[in-house]
Design a binder for these strands. Structure first.
Lengths: 205, 205
DNA sequence: TGTACATCAGTGAACGCGCGTTCACTGATGTAC
DNA sequence: TGTACATCAGTGAACGCGCGTTCACTGATGTAC
């Protein structure tokens, strides 16, 4: 039992969990400090023992999200090694998997309007996650003849944008924007076409 | 002079303009009925002469956005005819241009959480805009050998997702997510690689 | 082991605020005669 | 053209609400002796 400490045990994390649940259920707007406190079984005033205020709660939720996100794509990257192509494709899939698995974190990170620079820890962990994507792109671009090789950061920006767009438009129960294809397939095929365009996958496969 | 009717002349549109300005300046959250009214030089109560409430104001802003959006990409599509490739590329560029030129509308349409089915007019105009993109994709896919031709709707979904991702991640003053490349270049090159992957652009260009 | 005390995570009442919404009203406009 | 009247887009006061935040407080916990 985690009931060490009497009053609540681990209120700080319980509050973050409430925040994530509320964000997931009601969108980035539909979260209030008071409701998060109530859901954690605690008075709004108690929140101030652990956070400076409302904004810092979202920032912490986003920070935890970036941390998990970074781990997931790092693991995906590693799992594809030593094949640069396999590693790259795995990170793409990991992006979507993360968005699916941790929707509350995803929203806190990308849709809540939280500034990435609002705390040094957040900035650090966000950059670290991003670096994995760029590493994967960089590895892969080694296989492209230098004269037709795009900068790796452009490369990874493309994939990131495609992944993010798929999530936002098709992987959420968003504005009637139903696609006839599962998001996973959409992303998979999209990345496939893109890589073929770079000459990294044979023409006729 | 449009000052027909005495009190304001055209309060309804003035309110929508305020909504768009507020949304653009302070995000989809930072818009309140009261502030929009104040900015239009009018009492909050006056709003109810023209709208059922807050939500209907955003919905109308989104509707106008879809209308402009539809016109812009229709025009872009036409401008590229009869070349299917030129038409397709033009619609992609039009997407980004719209997001740049009408940020308030864009946010109302895609980030405000407004349900696309909240009114029949909104649904109609949104579907019409979407149909243009699919038409462009469909035209273009005629040039792909049938056996390796992806469904046109998947095709357009890819481009839409890429465009949306570029806008959201790199074309907004968003969370420190600065890219070393202008969003226009990012989208242009991304679409280029994608089309090459489909065999629609020669290998060595 | 027992007691006195410091710590500190919580309470609960209170606050000021801006929100969306309502209501009876007012007064400029357009129109019928 | 002038007058009486209907229309209707606005006012302004009021409301109840939930928000974020503050404050003095309480009482369970951990610790020193």
């Amino acid at each position: 039992m985690s009931k060490r400490g009497y009053h609540h045990g681990n209120l700080r994390q319980a509050l973050i969990d409430s925040v994530l649940g509320l964000i997931e259920a009601k969108g980035p707007t539909g979260f209030t400090l008071s409701e998060a406190a109530k859901q954690a079984g605690v008075t709004p005033a108690a929140v101030y023992r652990h956070f400076d205020g409302r904004d810092q709660m979202i920032a912490e939720a986003a920070r935890q999200g970036y941390e998990i996100f970074g781990q997931q794509i790092q693991r995906a990257y590693d799992s594809g090694q030593p094949s640069a192509l396999a590693a790259f494709e795995a990170t793409g899939r990991a992006y979507l998997a993360f968005a699916r698995q941790y929707p509350g974190h995803y929203i806190a990170m990308f849709e809540s309007g939280v500034a990435i620079n609002c705390s040094p820890e957040l900035a650090t962990v966000a950059l670290r996650a991003r670096a994995v994507l760029e590493q994967a792109a960089s590895d892969l671009s080694q296989h492209i003849p230098p004269e037709k090789r795009p900068p790796p950061s452009m490369f990874s920006a493309h994939i990131w944008a495609l992944s993010h767009g798929v999530v936002e438009l098709f992987a959420r129960n968003s504005p009637g924007m139903t696609s006839p294809f599962p998001p996973e397939d959409l992303l998979e095929t999209g990345i496939g076409v893109y890589l073929r365009g770079l000459g990294l996958i044979p023409e006729d496969v």
